[in-house]
Nucleic acid binder design. Structure first.
Lengths: 185, 185
DNA sequence: CCATTTTTGTACTGTTAGGTACAGAGTATC
DNA sequence: GATACTCTGTACCTAACAGTACAAAAATGG
């Protein structure tokens, strides 16, 4: 009666995409079973806490990816290497603006209240790590703080505007501008 | 059996705030009746199309406000007057970042599909009107296009980041930076 | 190849969703 | 003050919601 192939790890990216597309409230269990191919039995086996559990695991997964692929390099590697690597990672991760930021989307509505610590931590660590890299690249404290905040903010804004206008070039254009602005000064 | 006080026009801002807080899917009819004080009878009397009708009317209302208070002035008045007026209007409208942009929020999840024309129009006209004002202020076409896009994008990003981090100063800080950047060049 | 554990489908729960029907109350008009 | 129209509460509908129970199946592993 079962097919027994799925691993919990394989399901997480699928769940992430579902929450991205539909939002937390819009992601109903029937749509989750539909798009993951997993029945309720399997879903509640892997995520005993139900939908909130799934979203929490997905958020933790996203957070871990950024921590490993973006924040840590910014903190530990040479800024001259880590900052360009960030542009590449961000462009790839968000599919040049075709994919939204789940953390940002959750921040906008009441879903924020369920995951406020994770959401706050994600953005806080991103800005701090970038600020740290900019400081080590020779920027003064004020400029580094300003540019770090501006960069993360512009990435989020570009994701909103990309989805709103359907302008496929907007995200890449924004990253190019940020590259120039952050490289200068 | 009835109290007969409400006007349709009075309900729209309440509905707007509800959709802002809860998102389209999160705004259930029971929460709408609860927070507006109107029963289903009244709601369906004013908005025969139900929830989708309410959201459409709210979006049209938001759009009309921006058209009248921001876009039109940018197109018709002196840029030296209209652009500073835009910063003021935006700061007041979004309560210095304490209030999100409904249009931007709807753009992120599948709600976008229901209202894509309105959403696209809102951002498109905003960017175009600002670009127009910047052109008339003496900017060349390329700079005007870039600054207009960057400005609207940064406002949206600041709203996301404000809600995510709870940093109350972020929105005002961002507007100040935009003011300087747009005034220069 | 048998015992145990992990994974899965199905059936079911109570609750809430959005929406409809409609009668009655309130206001207005003449 | 009878008539028409606007507004509102209540009762009700079907479908979908999140979640539970559980037994059968698949893998594991000795």
């Amino acid at each position: 009666m079962a097919r027994m192939v799925h691993e919990r790890t394989d399901v997480i990216p699928l769940l992430a995409e579902i929450f991205r597309d539909l939002g937390y409230e819009g992601a109903t269990l029937s749509r989750i079973t539909e798009r993951t191919g997993l029945g309720k039995g399997s879903l509640y086996h892997f995520f005993p806490g139900g939908k909130e559990d799934m979203a929490a695991v997905v958020l933790a997964d996203v957070d871990a990816w950024f921590e490993r692929s973006v924040f840590q390099p910014l903190r530990l590697e040479e800024p001259q290497r880590a900052i360009p690597a960030m542009w590449e990672a961000v462009d790839a991760y968000f599919h040049s603006g075709q994919r939204i930021c789940l953390v940002g989307a959750f921040a906008l509505d009441e879903t924020r209240d369920r995951f406020s610590a994770t959401i706050r931590g994600y953005f806080g660590r991103w800005i701090e790590a970038l600020q740290d890299a900019l400081l080590r690249a020779g920027r003064d404290k004020e400029t580094a703080a300003r540019d770090a905040e501006e960069t993360v903010l512009a990435i989020q804004g570009a994701l909103v505007l990309s989805r709103a206008t359907g302008d496929e070039g907007l995200f890449a254009r924004t990253l190019d501008r940020l590259r120039l602005r952050v490289a200068a000064a």
